[in-house]
């Protein structure tokens, strides 16, 4: 039964891909706030009304830090759109990030008013589940970044499955608990929720449910995404994965951010995460 749902997801993906292209903007903005959420997680806020008006959940920015000595911009999903975290119309945008390397290390040190160069909107964004189809989010740690904006865009309250190594890596847990229909938590050390990987509560949730009634949307580390793919595709469950990779440009030119996918010729293709993703249907991936 893979075929029916797989082709639906692929069709939805193609429909998205042929939407009229939106102009990519390159703006210099100032940090409005850069709030530490503990354990190296931060919520960065800036305002860019023109970009905020065009951006959809699942799209991303390339953010540069002028004068920092960091050469390339870094990719970050949009976490908050206007209205996600607060009701205002001033073009507020938010990025959730964790300090992982030099780039995010410098970003974490920026105070209010510091300049950022922001390129966006980039990438395709999520395909919203049809009304009546329950969105089931699976997030691994900082992979929760794109879900607040998406939660607000869904017509049916989503189920949130939130996994991480430890309690400190669930930076938006309270927010999801108050905005999702159901929030199930798993940590590898058992410090909050059940002990183990997030796939365990996911499989339990799926048990006995008709795959036509829900759709999976996952973002997190590659091994987690592989596991979700391996659950969803054989069972014929619609599943979108939001991917991440090192990239130099963010708009399709460096071809640095590719992921192996099933090509039309039956061989592996290398698909750019930045322009053909970051959201891809799970069945397209060849890893």
């Amino acid at each position: 039964m893979t075929g029916a749902y797989a082709s639906t997801a692929a069709q939805e993906f193609l429909q998205r891909a042929i939407l009229p292209k939106i102009m990519i903007l390159d703006k210099t903005v100032a940090v409005v706030s850069n709030e530490a959420l503990g354990n190296g997680n931060f919520l960065l806020t800036f305002a860019e009304p023109e970009m905020a008006a065009e951006m959809v959940p699942g799209q991303f920015f390339m953010i540069g830090m002028p004068g920092s000595g960091i050469l390339l911009r870094r990719p970050f999903s949009v976490c908050g759109l206007p209205g996600t975290f607060e009701n205002d119309s001033s073009g507020i945008l938010q990025v959730l990030y964790k300090v992982m390397g030099q780039g995010t290390g410098v970003l974490a040190g920026l105070g209010d008013g510091a300049p950022l160069t922001v390129l966006g909107p980039l990438g395709n964004g999520f395909t919203l589940p049809q009304p009546g189809v329950t969105p089931v989010f699976v997030a691994g740690g900082i992979g929760s970044a794109p879900f607040p904006a998406l939660t607000k865009a869904c017509s049916t309250p989503p189920v949130m499955l939130y996994g991480a190594r430890s309690a400190g890596d669930l930076p938006l847990l309270d927010w999801f608990r108050s905005h999702c229909g159901e929030t199930l938590v798993a940590t590898e050390d058992g410090s909050v929720g059940e002990k183990g990987l997030v796939t365990a509560p996911l499989l339990r949730w799926m048990e006995g449910r008709d795959p036509a009634t829900y759709a999976l949307i996952a973002c997190g580390p590659d091994p987690m995404l592989r596991a979700i793919r391996n659950i969803a595709v054989p069972a014929g469950i619609r599943c979108q994965l939001s991917l991440e990779a090192h990239m130099a440009c963010g708009f399709g030119v460096c071809i640095g951010c590719v992921v192996p996918t099933h090509g039309e010729d039956g061989e592996v293709d290398y698909t750019r995460i930045c322009v053909d993703g970051p959201v891809l249907p799970a069945e397209k991936l060849a890893w």
Binding site: L71, L72, H246, A248, C254, I255, C257, V258, P260
Partner: peptide, 17 residues
């Protein structure tokens, strides 16, 4: 089709591809 990933990384004042 090119090489498998990872394909790019930033290095001091530059990048490898």
């Amino acid at each position: 089709k090119g090489n498998p990933p990872a394909r790019v990384v930033e290095t001091p004042a530059g990048m490898l591809n």
